[in-house]
Protein backbone atom coordinates (compact mmCIF):
# COMPACT_ATOMS: atom_id res chain seq x y z
CA UNK A 1 0.00 0.00 0.00
CA UNK A 2 1.41 3.36 -0.99
CA UNK A 3 -1.06 5.53 0.91
CA UNK A 4 -0.55 5.72 4.67
CA UNK A 5 -3.32 4.12 6.74
CA UNK A 6 -5.96 6.72 7.40
CA UNK A 7 -6.62 7.31 11.06
CA UNK A 8 -10.13 8.66 10.59
CA UNK A 9 -12.67 5.98 9.99
CA UNK A 10 -15.60 6.65 7.72
CA UNK A 11 -18.85 6.34 9.75
CA UNK A 12 -20.52 4.68 6.75
CA UNK A 13 -17.90 1.93 6.81
CA UNK A 14 -18.53 1.42 10.51
CA UNK A 15 -22.27 1.24 9.84
CA UNK A 16 -21.66 -1.31 7.09
CA UNK A 17 -19.61 -3.43 9.50
CA UNK A 18 -22.43 -3.23 12.06
CA UNK A 19 -24.94 -4.29 9.38
CA UNK A 20 -22.72 -7.19 8.32
CA UNK A 21 -22.89 -8.39 11.93
CA UNK A 22 -26.66 -8.56 11.45
CA UNK A 23 -26.12 -10.62 8.29
CA UNK A 24 -23.89 -12.92 10.33
CA UNK A 25 -26.68 -13.42 12.89
CA UNK A 26 -28.93 -14.61 10.06
CA UNK A 27 -26.27 -16.90 8.59
CA UNK A 28 -25.54 -18.43 12.00
CA UNK A 29 -29.24 -19.05 12.57
CA UNK A 30 -29.73 -20.70 9.17
CA UNK A 31 -26.54 -22.76 9.46
CA UNK A 32 -27.47 -23.68 13.03
CA UNK A 33 -30.78 -25.10 11.78
CA UNK A 34 -28.90 -27.04 9.09
CA UNK A 35 -26.66 -28.33 11.88
CA UNK A 36 -29.68 -29.54 13.85
CA UNK A 37 -30.63 -31.68 10.86
CA UNK A 38 -27.25 -32.99 9.82
CA UNK A 39 -24.56 -31.96 12.30
CA UNK A 40 -22.00 -29.14 12.32
CA UNK A 41 -19.78 -30.64 9.62
CA UNK A 42 -22.67 -31.09 7.22
CA UNK A 43 -23.90 -27.57 7.92
CA UNK A 44 -20.50 -26.06 7.16
CA UNK A 45 -20.04 -28.23 4.07
CA UNK A 46 -23.46 -27.19 2.78
CA UNK A 47 -22.82 -23.50 3.45
CA UNK A 48 -19.45 -23.61 1.70
CA UNK A 49 -20.88 -25.57 -1.24
CA UNK A 50 -23.92 -23.36 -1.80
CA UNK A 51 -21.69 -20.35 -1.16
CA UNK A 52 -19.34 -21.46 -3.93
CA UNK A 53 -22.24 -21.76 -6.37
CA UNK A 54 -23.68 -18.39 -5.37
CA UNK A 55 -20.28 -16.70 -5.64
CA UNK A 56 -19.87 -18.09 -9.16
CA UNK A 57 -23.33 -16.78 -10.12
CA UNK A 58 -22.53 -13.33 -8.69
CA UNK A 59 -19.17 -13.31 -10.48
CA UNK A 60 -20.75 -14.37 -13.77
CA UNK A 61 -23.06 -11.37 -13.65
CA UNK A 62 -20.34 -8.81 -12.91
CA UNK A 63 -17.36 -10.64 -14.40
CA UNK A 64 -16.16 -7.91 -16.75
CA UNK A 65 -15.85 -5.32 -13.98
CA UNK A 66 -14.43 -7.83 -11.51
CA UNK A 67 -11.74 -8.97 -13.93
CA UNK A 68 -10.70 -5.40 -14.65
CA UNK A 69 -10.67 -4.51 -10.95
CA UNK A 70 -8.67 -7.61 -10.07
CA UNK A 71 -6.11 -6.90 -12.82
CA UNK A 72 -5.75 -3.34 -11.57
CA UNK A 73 -5.35 -4.49 -7.95
CA UNK A 74 -2.74 -7.08 -8.92
CA UNK A 75 -0.89 -4.45 -10.94
CA UNK A 76 -0.79 -2.12 -7.96
CA UNK A 77 -0.06 -4.57 -5.13
CA UNK A 78 1.31 -7.62 -6.88
CA UNK A 79 -0.01 -11.16 -6.90
CA UNK A 80 -1.45 -12.55 -3.70
CA UNK A 81 0.79 -15.04 -1.86
CA UNK A 82 -0.40 -18.64 -1.90
CA UNK A 83 -1.44 -18.55 1.76
CA UNK A 84 -3.95 -15.82 0.95
CA UNK A 85 -6.09 -18.56 -0.62
CA UNK A 86 -6.25 -20.47 2.68
CA UNK A 87 -8.98 -18.40 4.32
CA UNK A 88 -11.49 -21.16 3.62
CA UNK A 89 -9.38 -23.65 5.57
CA UNK A 90 -9.62 -21.41 8.66
CA UNK A 91 -13.39 -21.31 8.32
CA UNK A 92 -13.65 -25.08 7.94
CA UNK A 93 -11.43 -25.76 10.97
CA UNK A 94 -13.36 -23.15 13.00
CA UNK A 95 -16.50 -25.27 12.64
CA UNK A 96 -14.71 -28.37 13.91
CA UNK A 97 -13.38 -26.47 16.93
CA UNK A 98 -16.69 -24.88 17.87
CA UNK A 99 -18.61 -28.13 17.48
CA UNK A 100 -16.14 -29.65 19.96
CA UNK A 101 -16.61 -26.93 22.54
CA UNK A 102 -20.38 -26.50 22.10
CA UNK A 103 -20.79 -30.16 23.05
CA UNK A 104 -18.63 -29.73 26.17
CA UNK A 105 -19.69 -28.18 29.50
CA UNK A 106 -18.84 -24.82 27.92
CA UNK A 107 -22.02 -25.08 25.82
CA UNK A 108 -22.94 -22.35 23.37
CA UNK A 109 -22.53 -19.41 25.77
CA UNK A 110 -19.04 -20.41 26.85
CA UNK A 111 -18.02 -21.10 23.26
CA UNK A 112 -19.24 -17.67 22.14
CA UNK A 113 -17.62 -15.89 25.09
CA UNK A 114 -14.21 -17.53 24.61
CA UNK A 115 -14.46 -17.10 20.85
CA UNK A 116 -15.06 -13.41 21.41
CA UNK A 117 -11.94 -13.22 23.54
CA UNK A 118 -9.93 -14.93 20.79
CA UNK A 119 -11.27 -12.53 18.18
CA UNK A 120 -10.40 -9.46 20.22
CA UNK A 121 -6.89 -10.69 21.06
CA UNK A 122 -5.92 -11.52 17.48
CA UNK A 123 -7.45 -8.40 15.95
CA UNK A 124 -5.55 -6.21 18.44
CA UNK A 125 -2.34 -8.02 17.51
CA UNK A 126 -3.18 -7.79 13.79
CA UNK A 127 -3.65 -4.03 13.87
CA UNK A 128 -0.70 -3.44 16.19
CA UNK A 129 1.81 -5.38 14.09
CA UNK A 130 0.09 -5.13 10.70
CA UNK A 131 -0.07 -8.92 10.40
CA UNK A 132 -0.47 -10.80 7.11
CA UNK A 133 0.11 -7.97 4.71
CA UNK A 134 -2.63 -5.68 5.94
CA UNK A 135 -1.87 -2.12 7.07
CA UNK A 136 -0.68 -1.41 10.59
CA UNK A 137 -2.98 0.78 12.64
CA UNK A 138 -2.21 2.85 15.68
CA UNK A 139 -4.19 1.82 18.72
CA UNK A 140 -5.02 4.31 21.45
CA UNK A 141 -7.05 4.62 24.63
CA UNK A 142 -10.21 5.08 22.61
CA UNK A 143 -9.74 1.66 21.03
CA UNK A 144 -9.20 0.21 24.49
CA UNK A 145 -12.43 1.84 25.68
CA UNK A 146 -14.36 0.54 22.69
CA UNK A 147 -12.98 -2.98 23.21
CA UNK A 148 -13.94 -2.96 26.90
CA UNK A 149 -17.45 -1.59 26.35
CA UNK A 150 -18.35 -3.83 23.40
CA UNK A 151 -16.81 -6.94 24.98
CA UNK A 152 -18.58 -6.27 28.29
CA UNK A 153 -21.92 -5.67 26.55
CA UNK A 154 -21.53 -8.79 24.43
CA UNK A 155 -20.59 -10.97 27.41
CA UNK A 156 -23.61 -9.65 29.29
CA UNK A 157 -25.87 -10.64 26.39
CA UNK A 158 -24.21 -14.02 25.83
CA UNK A 159 -24.01 -15.08 29.46
CA UNK A 160 -27.17 -13.51 30.94
CA UNK A 161 -29.30 -11.99 28.19
CA UNK A 162 -30.11 -14.95 25.98
CA UNK A 163 -32.50 -17.40 27.60
CA UNK A 164 -34.90 -16.53 30.40
CA UNK A 165 -33.49 -15.69 33.85
Amino acid sequence: MTSPPTQRTNPLHLLAAFASGGILTLAIFVNGEAGRFGGAMFSSWLAHGTGTVVAILFLAVVWRGQRAAAAEATGKIGKAPLWAYAGGLCGAVTVMLTSTSVNSPLALAGTLALGLAGQVVLSLAADFWGLLGLPKRKLDLRDAGAVILIAAGSLLIILFGLGAA
Binding site: I77, C90, G91, L97, G115, G118, Q119, L131
Partner: peptide, 30 residues
Protein backbone atom coordinates in the same frame (compact mmCIF):
# COMPACT_ATOMS: atom_id res chain seq x y z
CA UNK B 1 -12.75 -27.36 24.85
CA UNK B 2 -11.56 -24.04 26.32
CA UNK B 3 -8.60 -23.96 23.94
CA UNK B 4 -10.84 -25.04 21.06
CA UNK B 5 -13.33 -22.23 21.67
CA UNK B 6 -10.57 -19.63 22.03
CA UNK B 7 -8.76 -20.91 18.92
CA UNK B 8 -12.02 -20.72 16.97
CA UNK B 9 -12.11 -17.00 17.76
CA UNK B 10 -8.51 -16.61 16.62
CA UNK B 11 -9.34 -18.40 13.36
CA UNK B 12 -12.32 -16.13 12.67
CA UNK B 13 -9.93 -13.17 12.64
CA UNK B 14 -7.16 -15.05 10.85
CA UNK B 15 -9.57 -15.98 8.07
CA UNK B 16 -10.82 -12.38 7.73
CA UNK B 17 -7.22 -11.16 7.63
CA UNK B 18 -6.19 -13.76 5.02
CA UNK B 19 -9.28 -13.15 2.87
CA UNK B 20 -8.65 -9.42 3.21
CA UNK B 21 -5.12 -9.89 1.88
CA UNK B 22 -6.42 -11.86 -1.11
CA UNK B 23 -9.03 -9.16 -1.79
CA UNK B 24 -6.26 -6.55 -1.93
CA UNK B 25 -4.75 -8.36 -4.93
CA UNK B 26 -8.12 -9.31 -6.47
CA UNK B 27 -11.57 -8.14 -5.34
CA UNK B 28 -13.66 -8.89 -2.21
CA UNK B 29 -16.07 -11.01 -4.27
CA UNK B 30 -13.31 -13.07 -5.88
Amino acid sequence: PILAAFAAGLLVILSRQVNGRLSMSTTPLI
